[in-house]
């Protein structure tokens, strides 16, 4: 019982999934809710947002927020494809794409952190500037054209390749792949969870987010701690951008990463992490990502009029948060 009370987001996810299976079994009779391909799709589609949401969790626990990640993802996708399309042999190109995408992500994340801490600009405002600025930079660098990847083999494999799921095949009889991004998402979540719960840095991040003055009085260099959290988020955004570029074999400067920042923040909040900082868990964000992913999947499968889907999604998000609240108040 105590486990359930401490894991409200998981309860919401489980409730939603059970409902999904029931509706499918009783009503649609299509078997989609338990179809391995559909479940794989949910994981695969949401691992990109998920990677960013994990980084966002650290930033939010540290008392910050980053609205720029969606635009940054667009910019990093563009930069990494530009690096990829330099004439070189395939492995070199792919490495260049990864280094440029992730490296620029780290640098820009670091810069965001510096502007916020030493520049003393509120995170909301500083990253709002990034939100508009990075998108514009992506459009300017490409003259608003979509870029197509010139790598035919290695680079697309980053996101399109994966490990075969035992016993599952697709329509063409090929083994069904659990794509690499799913594993990368899980790995990043695991590492971040370790950072948060076990490392000295994690203690200090929580302290800075909960009460920055107290942290400073305890001898913590709070600016440094916060800058690191933004840098980690920048790296996560870079990884997501490179993988999305691989999956779509190119990058569209206008649409890549659009409103990912909202999805990522929503996932963090739905998971139960407080926007006030100082409190939260990585795995609960992972659950939040899955809740959002499941909602989108259910909406498409249910054939609800697309114009109404937003309403339904909004109501379900509120319900998910209410389930959590209910659990909390009974504890």
């Amino acid at each position: 019982m105590k486990f359930l009370k401490n894991n409200q987001a998981l309860v919401a996810l489980a409730a939603m999934y059970i409902l999904y299976v029931l509706i499918d079994v009783i009503w649609w009779k299509k078997g989609v809710a338990t179809d391995p391909q559909n479940l794989r799709n949910i994981l695969s589609q949401n691992s990109y947002t998920g990677i960013i949401a994990v980084g966002m969790t650290l930033v939010i626990i540290g008392g910050g927020i980053d609205l720029s990640v969606g635009s940054l993802m667009g910019l990093l996708g563009v930069l990494s494809i530009l690096a990829l399309n330099k004439p070189a042999d395939d492995p070199t190109k792919t490495i260049a794409a990864i280094v440029v995408g992730v490296g620029a992500g780290a640098l820009i994340g670091f810069a965001n952190g510096v502007i916020i801490t030493w520049g003393k600009i509120a995170p909301f405002v500083a990253t709002l500037a990034g939100l508009v600025g990075f998108r514009s930079l992506a459009l300017a660098l490409t003259d608003a054209r979509s870029l197509t990847s010139s790598s035919k083999d290695l680079f697309p494999g980053l996101a399109q390749g994966g490990i075969p799921i035992p016993g599952a095949v697709d329509a063409a009889g090929r083994p069904l792949l659990a794509h690499w991004p799913i594993f990368i998402f899980i790995a990043i979540a695991a590492v971040s969870s370790w950072i948060l719960n076990r490392s000295v840095y994690g203690r200090r991040l929580i302290a800075v987010g909960a009460n920055e003055t107290a942290a400073i009085y305890s001898g913590i260099r709070s600016n440094q701690i916060r800058v690191i959290s933004y840098t980690i988020l920048g790296i996560c955004t870079g990884i997501a951008a490179v993988l999305q570029g691989s999956r779509l074999t190119g990058a569209d400067p206008a649409s890549l990463g659009q409103i990912v920042e909202l999805d990522a923040i929503a996932a963090v909040v739905i998971g139960g992490t407080s926007l006030n900082g100082g409190k939260g868990q990585i795995w609960s964000t992972v659950v939040g990502v899955l809740i959002l992913g499941l909602i989108s999947n259910i909406l498409v499968i249910s054939s609800i009029n697309p114009n109404w889907q937003g309403c339904v999604k909004g109501v379900i998000i509120l319900l998910a948060v209410l389930i959590q609240r209910g659990q909390k108040s009974t504890s």
Binding site: K30, N38, N41, I301
Partner: peptide, 10 residues
């Protein structure tokens, strides 16, 4: 891409 993935399952 993503919406089509889901519709194809159904």
């Amino acid at each position: 891409f993503e919406k089509m993935q889901t519709m194809l399952v159904k």
